[in-house]
Amino acid sequence: MTATVSRVVDLRKEPIEEALDRVECALHVRLDRASVLRKRRSVGARTDRESWVRIERRGLDRIGSQGGDGTAAAEALHGVAKPAWHGSVAWRDAEEPVMWRADETALLPGPPVGSAIVSEDPGLPDAWWAALNASLGALAAQHTYRTATPDTEAITQELVTQTIHGVFAGVDTMVDEWTPAHADLNWANMTAPTFCLFDWEDWGLAPRGLDTATLWAASLAVPALADRVRRERRGDLESRDGKLMLLFAAAKILGPHAHPEDPRLTAARAVAEQTVRELQSA
């Protein structure tokens, strides 16, 4: 019987030459093998026509109604600083219930701000924060039927409730406002000094404040940076849904898989406890 759920793999450890060869043939490009960047579930490389190709492996069970075409679908977004999309190719794995997809985009205007979770303040100028706010504001005003998939899992009311109640019992978790979100907003997916937001595979509708809460959680090891995120995006985080997303993000840090040496634990717990009090007294 053919498996319906894909095995979990790490593309930093898996052979990828066959996928690289297939992409070169389909997109009529040559990939610069020296520039290949391998991540857990994606591989990227520069091409001979001064563009970038990102190749992702995603289980069919993780695609659902989205279709796995986030980068292409994001091309319709207006007012959001992101690399232009040029084309793509997708295919089903011959042996596993997996879709491979490669998207070719324009090169980024600069390097990523840092790793997904930072331990030092990147020292971003006011103009960078203004560009972030402009893009997130424009994104929230768009219309889509896509569902956001943070960590490749569709975000639903049930998921929000289960995640929050796994750590913070007794909180009313009903979401009121769903808006378009990038759904993987961290410091590895934005550039500096010129702001640009990339890796759009998971974008779609999510509770208001998901992106802000995600970025806040990725900043907690640097208190001043986490505070800056909260100040810049206070419109999101002062809303009831934004507070729920703070708990959603904090629950992922404080939950059963919490690492005892995670430098974010104390700050996440303090903000979460205050947020629970605010929600229960509202």
Rank of each mutant, 00 (worst) to 15 (best):
H143E: 14
T144A: 03
T144N: 13
R146L: 10
A148L: 04
A148W: 04
T152M: 06
T152L: 09
E153W: 13
A154R: 15
A154G: 12
V160A: 04
I164V: 09
I164G: 08
V167W: 08
F168S: 01
F168M: 03
A169H: 12
A169N: 08
D172A: 10
D172G: 05
T173N: 06
M174Q: 12
M174L: 05
M174G: 03
D176F: 03
E177L: 02
T179L: 13
A181N: 09
A181Y: 04
H182Q: 15
A183T: 05
L185C: 00
N189E: 10
A192L: 02
P193W: 09
T194W: 01
L197H: 15
D199N: 10
D199Q: 11
W200M: 02
D202E: 13
G204P: 14
L205A: 09
A206I: 14
P207I: 02
G209E: 13
A213R: 01
T214A: 13
T214V: 03
L215D: 09
W216T: 12
W216R: 14
A218N: 04
A218E: 03
S219G: 06
L220A: 02
L220G: 00
P223K: 01
P223S: 00
L225E: 07
A226I: 00
D227H: 06
R228E: 15
V229Q: 08
E232H: 04
R233L: 15
E238L: 11
R240C: 02
D241Q: 03
L244F: 14
L244S: 12
M245T: 01
A250T: 03
A250N: 08
A251W: 10
I253T: 12
G255W: 05
P256R: 14
P256M: 11
P256I: 09
A258V: 05
H259E: 06
P260V: 08
E261D: 11
E261Y: 01
D262S: 11
D262T: 05
A267C: 01
R269M: 00
R269V: 00
R269L: 09
A270M: 09
A272G: 01
